[in-house]
Design a protein around this nucleic acid. Sequence first.
DNA 1: GTTTCCACTTGATCTCGGTCAAAGCAGCCA
DNA 2: TGGCTGCTTTGACCGAGATCAAGTGGAAAC
Lengths: 245, 245
Amino acid sequence: MKAQFDHTNCDECPIRHRAVCAHCDVDELEELEDIKYYRSFEAGQTIIWSGDQMNFVGSVVSGIASLTQTMEDGRTQMVGLLLPSDFVGRPGRDSAPYDVQATTDVVMCCFRKKPFEDLMTLTPHIAHRLLQMTLDELDAAREWMLVLGRKTAREKIASLLSIIARRDASVGQKGMSGQIVFDLPLTREAMADYLGLTLETVSRQISALKRDGVIVLEGKRHVTIPDMGRLMEEAGDDSDGGFLI
Amino acid sequence: MKAQFDHTNCDECPIRHRAVCAHCDVDELEELEDIKYYRSFEAGQTIIWSGDQMNFVGSVVSGIASLTQTMEDGRTQMVGLLLPSDFVGRPGRDSAPYDVQATTDVVMCCFRKKPFEDLMTLTPHIAHRLLQMTLDELDAAREWMLVLGRKTAREKIASLLSIIARRDASVGQKGMSGQIVFDLPLTREAMADYLGLTLETVSRQISALKRDGVIVLEGKRHVTIPDMGRLMEEAGDDSDGGFLI
DNA sequence: GTTTCCACTTGATCTCGGTCAAAGCAGCCA
DNA sequence: TGGCTGCTTTGACCGAGATCAAGTGGAAAC
């Protein structure tokens, strides 16, 4: 598992064009290459515990990780979904503010924090890129606040499906009837934790969307979206939201 | 109103030690001073409309502003509260992702975006400080996701009160019985928009907290917290949360 | 083959917060 | 002084989603 990424050159990296190292020039990339190493995690494993010292930062290369906060009585809220190319860690901070968990098997490209921070002060490209990525995350978090605070259960499910579709999907039949097909990377419980619902409600609403023809389910995880516009309407988003079919 | 800040030197600025310009050295500060200007807004005024071109960035000097997202059918969610020293704007972005509104009368210290961005590429202090502030905002947004997704109405109110208390309060009687006293800067409706509730529910829960002695109200806005620990328990936060009385 | 397990579905009931409606209350203008 | 106007409180009722409780189905284990 680990070997499949070891010794990979950065310019062959599948996520490089979206990750923090995008737009780095050749010598910057070499510096990064010197301090990087890969780590693998199995589904369910906790990558970082809330409050832990974090001695590395890095990017998700494959798989899905999640950021979760938990109250003493066990109520949990997922506060972020990390897909390939997303950045993990806070340069300049010592301890993690929430748990990071591997939702599926995950491979990460890691940098020890100190050398990375040093590099960041020297290479404005990286600092700039990191600021842009952080601003994107902030926008995503705030968009999610609207979902959590004001949307109905059905709208929440539709919102989650369209977010996953947007980042994770492959287009099936091309052309005008461009269906979107993907596998849900989350259990019903994980979806519930992301959406601020119970898993029963998630299940019921998915059944309802299926009954109404908004989605097509094969098995429990394989989803087809016959009409992305319809799904976005169900999500309550402005008609297009910059989404490209 | 405007005149009271015009021509002020940065090193006399009341919010300077917390704002984006903190830790700048003298010549950096002079550069900022060259491109800064003040703008005032009245309570209720919209500072930036969602989707607008943003040609400036800046810091809140006094007053309170809020970031809000609105759905087509009118449901609105406040996604951020900007207190003095908080930064407004996204270097490197053209259009605003949400409305910025003056909740009270607001004075802002603005910089035209282009010169600020240029300055940022030259002065690592500012870029670094901005990244740190953005990471703080991200943490705050994610903490709020837990509030929106998993807390009860009573816990939501208690959470909001303790956040305002933390940043906005003055300590009354010093010593062991350190009461905390402040004026609510938000209407019941604005609180509801922040908490994902209706204004009626906000009103009822405030009445309940008052009845139970968690808070003391004089009039509708003046709040005394006799026991901050008690309030934080009601908010469902971990006992101390790093809060210092 | 069948047992077990786990993720999921479905049903019955309850409850918290939303909705609708009516006052209360302070500041403001005439 | 009196009536507006806008913010707030309070009450009565309702419903979306939570809770509690079976039941289903498919894949791995024996």
